[in-house]
Simulated scan of single mutants.
Amino acid sequence: MPIDNRNNTAARAAMLARVGSVQQAAYARPIEYQEGRAHGLKAIEVKNGPLRFMSMADRALDVAQIEYRGENLTFLSKPGLNGRNQFDTNGLEAQRSIMGGLFFTCGFENICAPYVTPAGSKYPAGSYPMHGRIRTTPAEHVSSDARWTENGDYVLEVSGEMREAELFGENMVLRRRITSVYGTPSITVEDEVINESFRDEPLMWMYHCNFGWPLLDEGAEVVIPSLKATPRDETTAADDTPWSEIGAPVENRPESVYLHELAADADGHSFAGVVNRKLGLGVVIDFAAADFPYFMEWKSMGAGDYVVGLEPSNSSVLGRGWHEERGDLHTIAPQTSERKTVAFTVIEGETAIDALTARRDALVGKA
């Protein structure tokens, strides 16, 4: 078991007495993949005791693979890990480079379906690929660190910045910091987006969080303090299984997508998670509800595409065109910035899972 070093400087000495190198238990280590579609892909491997994850330096520092006690928690799509490739910005062909993972960042000019600005629009002409361009943007100024703090924490950290820019177009910078504290099975992602152009720019911003087998399996449950779940389309409306229930994979079953209205606590915080009582594990996403006025659930029970996506967002899954027609496309002013934070925590055991469902019930009951 990891030594609990939180707020205890004596734990540092206790741990160092038991190891030759701290890297027996925790490290942040640059790596590079050597074959297949991932050839040349640079990443940071982070180990925090039983928690292990990869931050993709060549893909916006998004967290692709994550494991807890050797169990995979997330979905990896059929193409597998991808490095830099030609499928970055070509409409629906983006599906050939969407890997899944704990999260990939969607935006900033578009999320969800590809979109082409129609003739006569007040917005500049443009062709916007599925889920935008930022997710395939390589990071610059990449840094990884592992260090003791004054209060006895051993902090693992990855940071860098990504730029989405075009001649005569946008100039958006995403500055990202990912931290994890030894002894705590949690990852915190702190992001800042800066508009370095001299005009208002669209800022559609979504975290596409993807959970897969063995965490996702028959009998697992999606835990969301949902006040209302609206089907995206007729296919979803015809799905007679509850949005919260996970069944076995079914050949060629179509995806279902729900738009949720979430309850929040007195401090404005909300959450979403997936739990598997048989496995005794779950993953919870925590965030400020005001940062994400939209929340979507992507439920794909198809064999080979077996995944649940939980998607806190500042824009709707209905897409850029929907917002343009409504006149409420979210924009950011020149030379200003916006910040968002999301935290991912692994929970373990029946008591922790019960506490999460009780948290959901309390929020829904108070709304």
Rank of each mutant, 00 (worst) to 15 (best):
A28D: 10
V63Y: 04
G101H: 01
P50L: 11
G80A: 09
T105G: 07
R84I: 15
N72V: 03
A25L: 15
A25I: 12
R59F: 02
V22P: 14
N72K: 09
E93M: 02
G40V: 09
L76Q: 14
E71D: 08
K42R: 15
T105A: 10
E45V: 02
Y27R: 12
Q65E: 08
G91W: 00
I98K: 00
V63K: 02
G100A: 02
S77W: 02
I31P: 04
A25S: 11
R84D: 06
I44S: 07
T105R: 11
T74M: 04
P79L: 09
G91I: 01
M54T: 02
R52S: 11
M56R: 01
L81M: 15
I98D: 01
Q95A: 07
Y33T: 05
L92F: 06
M54S: 01
L92P: 00
Y33A: 12
T105F: 09
H39A: 14
K47R: 14
Q86T: 05
M99Q: 03
S77P: 05
S77H: 11
N48K: 09
M54N: 01
S77M: 09
L51G: 06
G70Y: 13
Y27Q: 09
P30V: 09
L73Q: 06
I31D: 13
A25G: 05
K42C: 13
E45I: 03
G83Q: 07
G83F: 06
R69G: 08
N90M: 08
G36F: 10
A26I: 10
G40Q: 09
E93L: 06
L51S: 07
I98L: 14
Y68E: 09
A64P: 03
G70L: 10
R69E: 14
D88M: 03
E67Y: 15
E45S: 09
A38K: 04
N85Q: 05
L61I: 04
L92V: 03
L41V: 12
L73V: 06
L41A: 14
P50C: 13
S55D: 02
Q34Y: 14
K47G: 01
E67Q: 15
R59L: 03
N82S: 15
N82F: 01
L51R: 06
E71N: 09
G40F: 10
G100I: 01
K42G: 06
E45G: 03
F104Q: 05
G36T: 12
A64W: 11
G101P: 01
E32L: 07
H39V: 14
A94W: 00
A64V: 07
M56S: 02
L51K: 11
V22M: 13
F87H: 04
R84E: 10
V46I: 15
F87Y: 08
G49W: 12
S97N: 02
N85E: 13
L61P: 00
P30A: 13
A25P: 01
G70W: 14
A28S: 15
G70D: 12
V46T: 12
N85F: 05
A38F: 03
H39R: 15
F104A: 06
K42F: 06
L76I: 15
I31W: 10
I31Q: 09
